[in-house]
Simulated assay, not measured.
Amino acid sequence: MMTLPEPACTLGYTATQLGEILGDGVDVYRAWAVGKTQGVCEGEPWCTEPHGIVHFERDVTRFKSARARSQ
């Protein structure tokens, strides 16, 4: 089973985290995620700081798992 870091935002992974998790695969993820729902963190009441667009943990996990199986 794959272990990913805890999302920095309560809504999901930040853009920085996405790059750290996926590395060179981040552009492939972004193409795959076109049309999927993304969260927008504006800070309170969800977080202590605004993170902007966040990527839901479930989507990142599913993408990362599928990519690992295909390699």
Rank of each mutant, 00 (worst) to 15 (best):
M1H: 07
M2G: 06
M2P: 14
T3K: 08
P5K: 02
E6I: 06
P7E: 08
P7W: 06
P7D: 09
A8P: 10
A8V: 05
C9K: 01
C9T: 03
C9P: 07
T10N: 08
T10W: 02
L11H: 09
L11F: 09
G12N: 05
G12E: 04
G12M: 05
Y13Q: 01
T14Y: 02
A15F: 04
A15N: 04
A15T: 06
T16C: 08
Q17T: 01
Q17D: 05
Q17Y: 04
L18T: 08
G19M: 12
G19N: 13
E20G: 10
I21N: 03
I21Y: 02
L22I: 15
L22W: 14
L22E: 09
G23M: 04
D24Q: 14
D24L: 09
V26F: 07
V26G: 05
D27W: 12
V28L: 13
V28W: 10
Y29M: 09
Y29P: 07
Y29R: 07
Y29Q: 13
Y29E: 10
Y29D: 07
R30A: 15
R30S: 12
A31K: 14
A31T: 11
W32T: 02
V34A: 15
V34C: 08
G35F: 05
G35A: 13
K36S: 12
K36P: 07
T37V: 06
T37C: 02
Q38T: 08
Q38K: 11
V40G: 02
C41P: 03
C41R: 01
C41Y: 03
C41S: 02
G43H: 03
E44Y: 12
E44Q: 10
P45W: 01
P45R: 01
W46N: 14
W46E: 10
W46R: 05
W46I: 07
C47Y: 00
T48S: 13
T48P: 10
T48H: 15
E49P: 01
P50D: 03
P50K: 06
H51R: 00
H51T: 01
G52D: 01
G52R: 04
G52H: 00
G52P: 00
I53P: 00
V54H: 00
H55E: 06
H55R: 04
F56C: 02
F56S: 02
E57V: 02
E57I: 00
E57K: 02
R58V: 05
D59L: 11
D59I: 08
V60C: 05
V60K: 06
T61P: 04
R62E: 12
F63I: 14
F63M: 11
F63N: 11
K64L: 12
K64T: 11
K64N: 06
K64I: 00
S65N: 09
S65G: 09
S65E: 13
S65H: 07
S65P: 04
R67G: 10
R67M: 14
R67D: 09
A68M: 12
S70M: 10
S70P: 01
Q71D: 13
Q71R: 13
Q71Y: 10
